[in-house]
Structures are given as C-alpha cells and as structure tokens.
C-alpha cells in the first residue's frame, strides 16, 4: 500500500473533476472509478454566483478526499498565494502544485516549481508537485520537502500517453521510496496500465475520462487498467528478448516430416 503523506489509499486512480458534461455525470464517474481522491480548484466567484457552493456540496456528498491544485498559476507568488487560499477553503494541507512555464505544452516551470515547493513545504503544506521526469529537478523537489512526485506522462489534456517511458522508468529506479504518480497526458486505460507496470504508485487523470463519449464507462475502464497494471508489476513481467522462443515444447513432438 502506498502512503501519500501518511494517507494510505486503496485506489491508485486519482481523478480530476473538470470538463464533465454535468455534475451528475461527474458524480457517477467518480463512483465508477473507485477514486478516493479527486482534484479540485478555485476560481473567482461573484456575490450573486452560486456555482462554487453547489460544486462544493456535491464533492462533500461523495465522501472523497480532495487534492486542490494551483492550475493556471505562472509565477511562484501566484502559486503560493493560491495554495494559501486553497488550504483555507478546502481545509487540507495537500496541494497539487502547478507552476506553468509554457503556454502551448503547459510544461511546468521547474525552477519556479522548486522554489514554490520549498516555501510551501516550510509552511507545513504537503506538496504534490506536477513536474517533468527530469531527475535533477526531482532531487531538488525532494530536498525542498516533497514526499510525493508527479511527473507528467504527456502535456495536460493531450491524451498522448507516456511520452518518455525511459525517463519515467529512470525516475522509478532513482526514487524507490518516494510515491510516484503519473499526472497528465493519459488518453486510454492502456496508458494507465503502462504507467502502473513501470511500478508507479498511482495515476492522476481528468480529461481522458471527462471528455470520453461515455465518461462513466471510461472511468470504470481506467480503474480496470490501473488494477491490471499494478497486478502485472507485482507479478514481475518477463524481460523482452530479440528472438522467438517457442512456448510449446519441441521435445516429444510427433515426427511427421521426411
């Protein structure tokens, strides 16, 4: 069982709450996914608006743990202030820390990320940094106080899967004791299974479920993919090899030729 800042989760699928066709579909998708943690955010609301309050009531009714994010933040100051607001609003020290550095790929600004992670960790936050698979950055994040790392699979919302399997595998090998979560870029359950087969502790996804033709069924499919990948990792897969090896024994084969 992996521990995320002392919290043990049965489900290794963390699910985002954005972009669903309706609140009812979101609720059913979360249930179908088996996720115990959902990501949430915070946005401006007017004095007459009630969307935020309604959303919060829905999340509370689901009985899941929330992981607030700093999505859309492009500077350390913005991310840190957003984290402060999120901690009060959602009453949790958990924060999915995003400091975005590039508009087209939504690639993390890893320099700002490390700086913000250090500030927040010193203030008692439990930081889940959205990062790349760069090992040096990952080391800096751990030094800054992060006890979970969340490298991207591919750019957010791209559905491309694992762009750098070698990098993700290296990260797993370098940080055997840090819970690792592939966050972002997954499109189909086989991507999630592949991440879990690498030995990742969990995956975090949103758009692949929310924008599927049937989000509830896709949530269930991802849950199965995650479970299959984890079971396969624990079962220790065989190594690939270049040449064929007959699976059916040759010895004892009937001699029928010339």
């Amino acid at each position: 069982m992996s521990s995320f800042y002392g919290v043990e989760l049965k489900s290794r699928l963390l699910l985002g709450t954005s972009r669903y066709p309706s609140p009812a579909v979101l609720e059913r998708a979360v249930k179908a996914s088996g996720a115990e943690v959902v990501t949430v955010s915070l946005r401006r609301e007017s004095g007459t608006g009630r969307a935020g309050q309604a959303f919060w009531s829905l999340i509370q009714s689901m009985g899941v743990r929330v992981l607030p994010n700093t999505a859309g933040c492009h500077s350390v100051k913005e991310a840190v202030t957003t984290a402060h607001m999120a901690r009060e609003l959602f009453d949790t020290p958990w924060i999915k820390l995003e400091v975005i550095g590039e508009a087209d790929t939504l690639q993390p600004d890893v320099f700002g990320l490390v700086e913000a992670a250090r500030i927040l960790s010193e203030e008692g936050f439990e930081v889940f940094p959205y990062t790349t698979e760069d090992l040096v950055v990952a080391e800096r994040l751990v030094e800054a106080g992060c006890r979970v790392l969340m490298p991207w699979g591919a750019p957010i919302g791209s559905a491309r899967g694992l762009n750098n399997v070698y990098g993700l595998r290296s990260m797993r090998a370098h940080f055997p004791d840090i819970p690792l979560v592939v966050d972002a870029g997954l499109g189909v359950p086989s991507h999630a299974a592949a991440a879990m087969e690498l030995g990742y502790d969990a995956v975090l996804l949103n758009t692949a479920v929310a924008e599927a033709g049937d989000p509830v069924e896709m949530a269930r499919a991802f849950a199965l993919g995650v479970e299959a990948g984890r079971a396969a990792y624990l079962a220790r897969p065989m190594e690939p090899r270049d040449m064929a090896v007959p699976s059916t024994p040759v010895i004892g084969k009937a001699a029928l030729g010339d």
Binding site: T39, V40, L42, G52, F55, W56, M85
Partner: peptide, 10 residues
C-alpha cells in the same frame, strides 16, 4: 480584492 470559491479542477 480577489474572492475565490471551490471549482472543478484537474
């Protein structure tokens, strides 16, 4: 002044 409320997020 910034006023924010809970919102959907990924």
């Amino acid at each position: 002044i910034e006023v924010v409320a809970p919102m959907q997020g990924g």
